[in-house]
Each structure stands twice: as C-alpha cells, then as structure tokens.
Write a protein that binds this DNA or RNA. Structure first.
Lengths: 100, 100
DNA sequence: TAAAAGTACTTTGTATTTCAAAGTAACAAT
DNA sequence: ATTGTTACTTTGAAATACAAAGTACTTTTA
C-alpha cells in the first residue's frame, strides 16, 4: 500500500523547525533567547526558521518587555498545532508500516 | 532542559530517505521499482537517495534477476536499523517534551 | 534482426535550502 | 557618548534536492 507523502509537512522537515514547533506545542509560549539557547543555533538562523513558521501562520509573535529588556515571545497557533499533529500522525503511520 | 540535536540523524531528515528506511526496516527487502512506485519519485531521484543511504552503510544492495529482468534489492543493514531506531527515539523524545 | 522497451543507474544543470557572519535598529545602562 | 542587549535582516556561500536526459545492458516484439 502507498503512503501519501502529502501528509508530511515540508515546514517540519527541518529538525530545527520541528524542534521549535514541538517546544511551542508543549509550552504556552517561549521566547527568542530561550529558544536560541535550547537549540544552540545562531540568532540569524533561528530568526529565519521562526520567520518560515510565521509565514505558514503556524506561530504567532508577541513583543513585550521583561524588566527593561525587549522580549519576543512565540506561540503555536491553532493552525500550527493542527498541522503539527497531522505531521506527527504521518510519522507514526510511516513507522508502523505494513508489509509488502 | 536541553534536547541534544545530535540524536537526530541527518540521513533521515529527508522524507524520501525516511520512508525508504521505514520500508526497509519493515520488510526484509524491497526492490528498486517497487520503491519507485511506492514513493512516486523519478528513478534518478530515488537512486541518489538510495546511494546516500548506502554511503552511510545503512542499506545494502543485492543485484539479482527475477525471471529475465534485472532486479535490485535493497536491505536495511544492522547499522541502518540501529541508526533508524535511534532516530525514532529522538523523535519520540522530542514529542513528549517536558515543560520549561 | 532491427527496433522498442525495461531496469537501474549516472550526469548535468538548476532551484531551493540552510547556515554563519556581519550588519542594523531600537532601547537601556553606564 | 559609548557600550551592551535583543531581535532581527542581509549577504553570500555551501549543501541539498530534483527533474530531465543520457547510458549500458538485456529482453521482448515486430
């Protein structure tokens, strides 16, 4: 039987974006610097992956101040959560694959 | 807590290779043409992904004849199976992620 | 027996993706 | 005034992905 590839979401193919999404699904929000530390990526790289997820409307951005410092918080949108779940299901289906 | 990114295997980041591997783990072997049909990719593209997995020694190749036609069979190696399992565990860990 | 077709590639060229590094804007602290 | 911090954007280079075309070998068909 065929596995429809279109179940997979290109936006989650990159492991940094996959990880960002999984962090944002597990936590109500997460800020830029914490993500940067967690994922051990450069800020430019992180920003571009976040932008990619934002472009898909999978995450939303909220700029605040913590104390006197700017703090950008990211949140998984409903659309993002749904898409992520679908992607995980596709992964699961892939893994428990039937024999030929 | 930090999630070590090095748990993820770059060789399985591409969804075609991920799928090839999952097919080869679930089945003792699978041939070129069946994979091509299953994954709906061009033969050139498939060949290059197979080559990438072969280079990592994650799969082995066995050229046979079925009837009068050449038939190339691919098999997941022990190394490949282990690496794939590790990758899946990394995915699992990612999914049931602890809170901040 | 010449032409067409099938298998499993390789080669070529282009497009896309990824990433680090450097630059930047806004604001705060010194 | 200068330095530091955050959260970017821009730039450029390297890596990756992919389709299309070409190839070698063999078989099938006309």
């Amino acid at each position: 039987m065929k596995i429809s590839l279109d179940q997979f979401d290109k936006a989650f193919e990159n492991r940094i974006r996959l990880q960002i999404m999984s962090v944002l699904v597990a936590n109500e929000y997460y800020d830029f610097n914490s993500l940067k530390e967690l994922l051990e990526v450069t800020d430019g790289n992180l920003a571009s992956h976040l932008k990619a997820l934002e472009k898909e409307e999978y995450i939303t951005v909220n700029k605040t101040f913590v104390g006197r410092k700017p703090n950008t918080q990211y949140t998984a949108s409903e659309k993002g959560r749904t898409a992520f779940e679908k992607h995980l299901k596709a992964l699961e289906n892939l893994i428990r694959q039937q024999k030929q």
